[in-house]
Design a binder for these strands. Structure first.
Lengths: 346, 346
DNA sequence: TCTGTCAATAATAGCGCTACGATTTATTTG
DNA sequence: CAAATAAATCGTAGCGCTATTATTGACAGA
């Protein structure tokens, strides 16, 4: 009996053109050494380093992060979930974070929750499938299942753009009620006593709601009158103009207006101009966001500038620290604060 | 000699809490069946499906996409590289694309090139490390190395937001020179003969440059005068106002102005208002972008509306088709066009 | 000369999953 | 009712890499 009877070459896999072994072979070292070189170059001799570098260049080797991640049980990806990147605030944070993370060769996986906790939950599940190095969520409010999913992960879970509630792990942001308070106090300092808050999409945007509540509270505390007029759609200048019209119809006595953000405020300014309502003499206006047009409009808009950029950078820093082993105390809270930009609209 | 001498349990790996085998065991099927169920549920019997579903829920199983991607030699990630997501145009595309891709359980890996081809190259390299299902780039201009890296990949390479040059694979967008032409022709139709183009960051923003060139060309073709005034920084209303001042100083005879985008145009409107320059009587203004404030400002801004949203959706569609095996002819070009929004500023 | 120590490198054993062929079971049909 | 066909399920062999341990070689001290 022929015991050399060979099985036919059974199955065949797809593959990557150039692998680490190819590099190793060309550089005349073992694959282990190539791997070591890629992860800790300082542990490899100068001669070997050079040979490997040369081989990588020559072969145009691109490491397979999935293989690496699988073997190391963690990937070079960071998942970030924001309501929407169309919103300039979150765009800013995402952008600054991506820039900071690139230096550590970490990549951003982006998801949009559209202010929907169910959506967020699904995205968290998908995100975890990548065994990310960290996961970043917007706000402190999440579904029970989301909390459960994240309760026991070994990676940093960072909640951004909101402070002041129970947090899963770390939180980076500021207190939105304080923003509202600051706006109200500012208007009152300008001798306004009939205050108004114009808000968009507040049924979904928890943080806008918090600003509104802080505003009302502070107004009440000083005995000023304060009303709210809102609109369910996403903030825009158009909605802002509409809200102003509605507001003046309902509350013609108003002399100080805070807006849930600068888009609304811009619309208010546009409407005031059309209707020859003097700003700030007849009506003081304050916004939130300090968007790109806010310093340039007529009159320049007083507004509260959040720290979207800083939030992203701090999140990246936290992730970096964790990666470098500095376990850091969990449940860290970083208050990035906000600043009042006093301009001529108030 | 004791041939039962056992080696000590050699090494130990980290691991994921719940794996597919755990699910299989609980559901009383083989891991293969679980895998099959996850990928092609219709190929598994109702009984098994139910048992597996139950087990997944019970164990809270989260598949490991890296293992899956490694085995399948391709991942559920799509890489998208844009200049910056702070730019509302790209934010729109990224957002609509993410929404469309989520339905197919594909995830977006985001990178910012900051208008730098070197940066882009590095990001492409990083992106390829994930064996993405597709890769999306902005524009048609890339470094030689980038082209080389992408020349032979088996996945769709989609270039967005620009048409009219040699493309790597598919391209989705529109012709920016046509935008410039449309703007010039519009102003000329409004009886303007002394035209001006105000541009920001044109040394980096190739597409803004193309719009400018189209504008100049069309003006020249009809015998109208056309000048350019530009500023190196990112577009903003502030820069727009500065550009207008500079422009009127250099070209006081101007009666029609096109802006590289609506931020600039908004700044122009602000400045005109401050200087009591009548728009459109003295000066007609047209922008590009149709941003959120453009319909609401004073006067409402005539502008050209691109199709950022559609670009994202079409890109997602292309990727989906490829995933479902419809090989589609390569080098596809999809012109998403643009529309002129004629409002009162012109 | 013989250890002992250290630095550099290599061999080994998977990480969790998918693709493929093989096998089993159910269903049909001559 | 056996044979042929179809449907459902399973077993196997990696995907390309990392982490750990094992090995090698150089050099020091005694």
């Amino acid at each position: 009996m022929d015991n050399t009877m060979r099985k036919p070459p059974r199955n065949r896999r797809k593959m990557q053109s150039v692998t680490m072994s190819d590099v190793a072979e060309l550089a005349n070292v073992s694959p282990s050494t190539v791997s070591l070189f890629l992860r800790k170059p300082e542990a490899v001799s100068a001669a070997a380093s050079q040979a490997i570098s040369r081989a990588i260049d020559k072969l145009n080797y691109v490491p397979n992060l999935m293989a690496g991640g699988l073997a190391a049980a963690s990937s070079r990806a960071v998942s970030i979930l924001v309501p929407s990147v169309r919103n300039a605030f979150f765009a800013e944070t995402v952008s600054s974070m991506q820039t900071a993370l690139k230096k550590q060769r970490l990549q951003l996986i982006l998801g949009h929750t559209e202010y929907d906790e169910q959506e967020e939950e699904e995205l968290v599940r998908m995100a975890l499938s990548w065994a990310p190095a960290a996961i970043v969520l917007t706000g402190l409010s999440h579904s029970a299942a989301t909390r459960r999913l994240l309760a026991n992960v070994a990676i940093p879970v960072i909640e951004i753009w909101e402070l002041g509630g129970p947090q899963i792990d770390a939180a980076i942001g500021f207190h939105h009620d304080q923003v509202g308070i600051a706006a109200a106090e500012h208007l009152i300092r300008q001798d306004r006593r009939n205050l108004l808050f114009l808000g968009a999409r507040m049924h979904q945007d928890r943080r806008a709601r918090q600003r509104c509540n802080g505003f009302l509270q502070a107004a009440k505390a000083t005995g000023a009158a304060a009303k709210v007029v809102e609109h369910p759609d996403t903030a825009s200048a158009e909605i802002g103009a509409m809200l102003l019209a509605e507001a003046l119809r309902l509350h013609p006595e108003a002399d100080g207006i805070a807006c849930s953000n600068d888009h609304i405020a811009l619309g208010v300014l546009f409407a005031c101009e059309r209707q020859k309502i003097a700003v700030p003499d007849r009506l003081a206006v304050i916004g939130f966001g300090d968007l790109s047009f806010s310093a340039a409009c007529n009159p320049p808009l007083t507004t509260i500038r959040p720290s979207g950029d800083l939030i992203g950078r701090e999140a990246a820093r936290l992730i970096e620290e964790h990666l470098h082993g500095e376990k850091a105390d969990a449940h860290r809270t970083i208050d990035t604060r906000f600043t009042l930009q006093h301009r001529r609209s108030s």
